[in-house]
């Protein structure tokens, strides 16, 4: 297939599946909490609804930074799609993209001048401590397999079996990392409802729709990376089932746990990181 067509199709698939998974997650959360909940396509409908709404840009915003930051979020996740499903490139790059996502969260918040955005920005800086499990995951995967290439990792797993069984604690850390990006999750301190919508508060209308599109792609990509890195060569139906299962598990956790306060959220993640790092190295040494 033509490379550009391939990229476009993958981006569109990522957007639709990511949005549907977000919708599913809300549905499951609602059922657990005894509500009927919105239809599964609600997240897509919301995205499009916001996208065509009349928008204004705040008087106080830092232009054109305020708009460019949303384009940046979209750009990095398009890059993730290229690195992941299209070319099977460097895993390190995916984690670089994850780091830039943090920066976007931080600066989307502060670029508007709103106090809610500012609080979210400060929380994003705090949650940079949650980067420790990220690097630990990378280090452990590399020490186990000797490669940082996604294609290389798939090949390794065809020979040696899924990494999920070999380095379960790294998988756990990665799972916590994915969970911190889910809406309503106990670790989603940058989007907590106590600060309205966190860094997205002042990005309304069109820009909110745009951010939501990128977030759907991000969600799809995070699950894709998890399934590829820890389960290895799997077929498309297994990918779909895996994504649905993971979204459901995360929905269950989100529905039953409150949002942690920033300090607790960070300490929880650091604790997971500590257990994961020490345990994984112990497992590698044996």
């Amino acid at each position: 297939m033509n490379l550009m067509t391939n990229i476009l199709i993958n981006v569109i698939i990522a957007f639709f599946i990511g949005s549907l998974l977000f919708g599913l997650q809300r549905k499951i959360m609602a059922r657990i909490q005894g509500r009927p909940g919105p239809p599964i396509i609600q997240h897509i409908l919301h995205t499009f609804k916001f996208f065509i709404k009349e928008s204004a840009f705040p008087y106080t915003a830092a232009m054109p930074f305020y708009i460019a930051i949303t384009a940046m979020l979209s750009m990095i996740w398009v890059a993730a799609v290229i690195v992941g499903p299209v070319t099977g490139g460097s895993l390190l790059l995916i984690f670089g993209i994850y780091a830039v996502h943090k920066i976007v969260e931080h600066n989307a918040g502060s670029s508007s001048g709103s106090p809610y955005g500012k609080l979210s920005c400060v929380r994003a800086v705090y949650s940079a401590a949650a980067e420790i499990p990220l690097f630990a995951v990378l280090v452990i995967i590399y020490f186990k397999t000797g490669t940082m290439n996604i294609t290389g990792l798939i090949n390794y797993q065809t020979v040696h079996g899924p990494l999920l069984y070999a380095i379960p604690l790294a998988a756990l850390m990665f799972f916590v990392l994915i969970m911190s990006k889910a809406p309503y999750s106990p670790f989603a301190i940058t989007k907590g409802k106590d600060i309205v919508s966190g860094y997205e508060t002042e990005h309304f209308g069109l820009l909110r729709g745009y951010l939501m599109m990128s977030e759907s792609i991000a969600w799809y990509m995070l699950l894709w990376v998890f399934l590829t890195v820890f389960l290895g060569p799997i077929s498309i139906p297994v990918y779909l089932i895996g994504m649905i299962v993971m979204s459901s598990i995360i929905a269950f956790i989100n529905a039953t746990t409150p949002l942690l306060n920033p300090n607790h959220s960070i300490m929880m993640q650091v604790t997971f990181a500590f257990i994961g790092i020490v345990g994984s190295f112990a497992l590698l040494m044996i």
Partner: peptide, 10 residues
């Protein structure tokens, strides 16, 4: 982007 941006008003 930083080079061409204005700053925000809090």
């Amino acid at each position: 982007i930083v080079a061409i941006s204005k700053t925000e008003t809090q």
